[in-house]
Design a protein around this nucleic acid. Structure first.
Lengths: 105, 105
DNA sequence: AATATATGTTACTATAAAGTAACATATATT
DNA sequence: AATATATGTTACTTTATAGTAACATATATT
């Protein structure tokens, strides 16, 4: 299900990892370099969760593990859930305008 | 920031509450009736988190609290983060096709 | 074969979240 | 005023998550 995708996206570190992988596939070591504040084990745990949610796929290359971004699950939750909510924006434009002002407070 | 929005959306109960509010604003009591398995306090805690993330706004009406959906934060995280990732779908159509088969396993 | 490098595994700690219970307040109804 | 109703608050327990440390394995390099 998409439950894992939502959970995976909830963490800012994981979204950052996805951002890094958006540009190009990277090895785990490269991702760790890009996240100097985090322990390697922490990065690997996050990657594990991203793999379970299918947001990241793994390619083994010798002793390296190349992590690839898979944007499909993201696209799917947008299609199946988010779009149903954001569609209202067009319908209730004036109302949103008001709420927007409250939100920015 | 949008951190709270991602966190709020991570929980399936909260997404269900948003689904209920999508149709029409509802009082807390009505939401509790729609979630018979959950304690009233649990529902209120979830609503609290939804309000903090601005996904729900509250209107007081006598002794009732009417909860309104605000789809704007959702729209914003799609605009600011999700769309940047899903945009790749068009660019890497063939690759995704392959990943799709892996994902559905 | 010996060594370095990259990743995997297990166990632990600290923090946060989900859920509930008991009690408190505030508004409507009679 | 007394009562019922709807919501708010505080404190607690259980479970899940983030993060780390120490050790294990597997591949490349020399």
């Amino acid at each position: 299900m998409h439950e894992e995708v939502w959970r995976a996206l909830a963490d800012p570190t994981r979204r950052h990892l996805l951002d890094l992988l958006k540009a190009e596939p990277r090895s785990t070591g490269e991702l760790c370099e890009a996240c100097p504040k985090l322990d390697r084990c922490t990065v690997m745990k996050h990657l594990e969760i991203l793999v379970q949610s299918h947001l990241v796929t793994v390619e083994r290359r010798g002793r390296s593990r190349i992590n690839h971004l898979n944007p499909l699950p993201l696209h799917q939750i947008v299609e199946k859930w988010v779009s149903g909510h954001t569609a209202q924006l067009a319908l209730t434009a004036q109302k949103i305008k008001t709420l927007s002002e409250e939100t920015s407070t």
